[in-house]
Write a protein that binds this DNA or RNA. Structure first.
Lengths: 153, 153
DNA sequence: TATTGTTATACTCTATAACTATA
DNA sequence: TATAGTTATAGAGTATAACAATA
């Protein structure tokens, strides 16, 4: 009976207390939990605006890059073009984004005045949500962001 | 024309180069990107086994807590009981998990011999995938895990 | 020939509501 | 009355394939 103890007790019948969780030792699992927590707060922040996280990402990215190509936005956000079409469509319907042909096949995206105004408002709140979590950090913010970028390849 | 420059250039028409991304300054966005990258690798690792990330989380958690209540597993993994039922069902169908009544309404979950064997194999690979990313880290692993736990509340 | 945008479609995850039964 | 498990269902988000138009 091999009985290696690291964290997850095996062959011990669990009765009532808290569960042993070998998952907590995994960077990927912790990363996912932290990410889910922050996204949950973000979703709640965005609910009153009737905008999804994806739509707001698009709003912010196009706002920072007026006239950018739709295909470049998709690549930057890692959203496939088949999924980007309806996402852009909803923002166009709401009068937040306008597109214009670049050449015969590419589209440029730009925020409307209403889009910029909403972007300004929402970006403030997104940053406020983000800051709430940053404040809990004990370790250096810049070092953490750099490490996370490294992990994302 | 308010022109505050932090990272995201506004009112500058983007032509060709790389996009300005105010999102990169957000902890939540970086966290999500890093998490997605690691999950992508994990999914590829698990593909040959025909198991999802959720199924493997369940396999590992039940493996570390034989006889645990299904409801406790759901709470630990933050999976709603309505979604846990088919997840457990698939592992039972594959002969990896068995359940037994605790009282008239609760179920205990335990891995079968086959379940433990598969868990051992898969856990090794999951840890190997995780370690691949840990190795890239410049900052202290323990400090990072602790910080991530703090963020997850 | 590769790229862009679109449409249609399928698959996974997650969320809610309703139900049974048990504590 | 609250909890546990189940079922059915709806909604996101994401993935692929096929197509037309263009570079």
């Amino acid at each position: 009976m091999a009985t290696k103890r690291t964290n997850g007790e095996d062959d011990t019948v669990t009765t009532a207390d808290r569960l042993a969780s070998p998952l907590d030792e995994l960077l990927g699992y912790r990363l996912r939990r932290a990410s889910m927590a922050m996204i949950g707060d973000l979703v709640a922040t965005l609910r009153p605006f009737g905008l999804s996280v994806g739509e707001v990402s698009l709003l912010i990215l196009v706002g920072a890059n007026p006239g950018c190509r739709q295909s470049d936005v998709g690549r930057a956000l890692e959203i496939k073009r088949a999924n980007l079409t309806p996402l852009v469509g909803r923002l166009k319907t709401r009068g937040l984004v306008i597109d214009a042909p670049i050449d015969g096949r590419s589209l440029s995206l730009t925020l409307t005045d209403a889009g910029r105004a909403l972007r300004d408002d929402i970006l403030d709140r997104v940053i406020a949500s983000d800051r709430k979590y940053r404040k809990r950090l004990t370790l250096d913010e810049r070092a953490l962001l750099a490490a996370l970028e490294t992990l994302a390849r």
